[in-house]
Design a protein around this nucleic acid. Structure first.
Lengths: 103, 103
DNA sequence: CAACTATATTCTTATTTGCATATATAGTAA
DNA sequence: TTACTATATATGCAAATAAGAATATAGTTG
């Protein structure tokens, strides 16, 4: 099928289509972080953070390396932030034009 | 909560995180289309197309207008295509680097 | 008004997803 | 080895999502 690419696109979108995973990515905007920093910053429990990180890793959005006991995650492709920023801009536009319609 | 924005971002990502909806958006890249053109082009049945269009409309990704019996859909913010193109580019990069690793 | 066409909605069922809890693994240190 | 710390995985359950079939609505035409 020629639309196989659409499945892959959808999978990547689905991977980032979760508030917690977006929060993780926003945290990683500041550079790599170990799990022990991530889950307290997001105020979620450790297994939950671990599962979301594994979702991101499975799709190739992040990678990890070990440093002693710690596992440190980083974003693979910085363009993921262009995606998030575009999404934010689209939302803002939508919000603004909706409010303009009400005014 | 400050992370309310993350919910909105996730909702928009979730809205486009479906192969059929991506196909609809790709079709609308060529300009507005009525439902009667969309569902045969995608080889899905009409209620299915209608439901996916309503998902896109509810999130504000597309709008519609009536013209006689027909309902014609259009994309609200062309930047959604920048998102899709970035996603494609990221996928391609991921694919390439994975194959390079195997070589 | 009745018949027809284009689109939308409802219902049911199957699948997927997310969370909480508990448990398991890996590395470190005594 | 034992105890401890950091991270990962398994289980069970509730909620969300998706597709097909059937039905409903809105607009058009005679």
């Amino acid at each position: 099928m020629a639309d196989q690419i659409n499945n892959l696109q959808a999978d990547l979108c689905k991977t980032i289509a979760h508030p917690t995973r977006i929060q993780i990515l926003e945290l990683l905007r500041g550079g790599e972080r170990c799990v022990c920093e991530i889950f307290p910053a997001l105020e979620i429990d450790q297994p939950n953070a671990s599962r979301h990180l594994s979702v991101l890793k499975k799709e190739g959005v992040v990678s990890s390396r070990k440093e002693g006991l710690k596992v440190i995650y980083r974003v693979n492709d910085q363009r993921i932030y262009q995606v998030l920023d575009l999404v934010t801009a689209i939302l803002k536009e939508h919000w603004d034009s909706r409010n303009k319609a009400l005014a």
